[in-house]
Amino acid sequence: MKKAIEMAQVISQKPLGNDIYDMILHAPQVAREAVAGQFVSVYAKDASKLLPRPISLCGIDREAGTIRLVYRVTGENTGTKEFSQLTDGDEIRIMGPLGNGFTVLPGKKAFLIGGGIGVPPMLQLAKDIKAGVAQGLVDDNGEKTGEIPAIQIVMGYRDAATFLLDEFEEQGESFVATEDGSVGTKGNVMDAIRENVLEADVIYACGPMPMLRALKEYAAQQGMECYISMEERMACGIGACLACVCGSKDKDEHSNVHNKRICKEGPVFDAKEVEL
């Protein structure tokens, strides 16, 4: 997975409501190499904003050479605010693909779980599993090696302002939880799993820390495997500055201490390996 820095061209951008934006970029070098669960560093044009913004790949179209970013504008005068104002034909500098991405266990029935702004990366994972091309289901030459697992999708949102839901429904059986109960189960993704009496062998998840903690605990109780995508403040995005570490159970081979670089060894980790 060779990393590239490229001037990506905005193909389209549309708001999905509640400060969430959906942007398609022509970025052939990144698209060619990327797998689900990886992210890109996005650089602001405003020179006072030095650091790249890490954004997960919500979509990868390897043929068209495009990637899709679904992201939240976090406030006024932010980098994401600047990104949201880009329109068709504008250019934006990105680096990627970064991190490891999800590795799917062949034949193991899976929950795909997303919470809040952790929802987007699960969409490409769902598509890649369904098509049998996810990392773990193919070898280096793209030959299919493993049995395509069944999936169930569980998404958690704050309120009725859900996003990407219709697209998840096209990929598989989908369940929803909202904090205010306006759609699906009232509560969080754990409540949706219980209410619908769902079962699986393995969890792939991305979302806020409380959700990841709950999933780690649940997986341990159930004896399930659990792979989670983590978040941390970054500077280099490629493993050089040691800004983005998380605690690890074992001594990490690179760092020689008990922590791992989220941008390099992650963002996807076996929940058993990391401290939350």
Binding site: A47, S48, K49, L50, L51, E232, R233, M234, A235, C241, L242, A243, C244, V245, C246, S255, V257, H258, N259
Partner: peptide, 22 residues
């Protein structure tokens, strides 16, 4: 092992780091 996270922050035209020499 260095410092706890967050270890970096962006500031106007600069950044702060407290990696703690991991």
């Amino acid at each position: 092992p260095g410092n706890p996270t967050p270890r970096v922050a962006e500031v106007y035209g600069g950044m702060l780091n407290a990696v703690g020499l991991q």
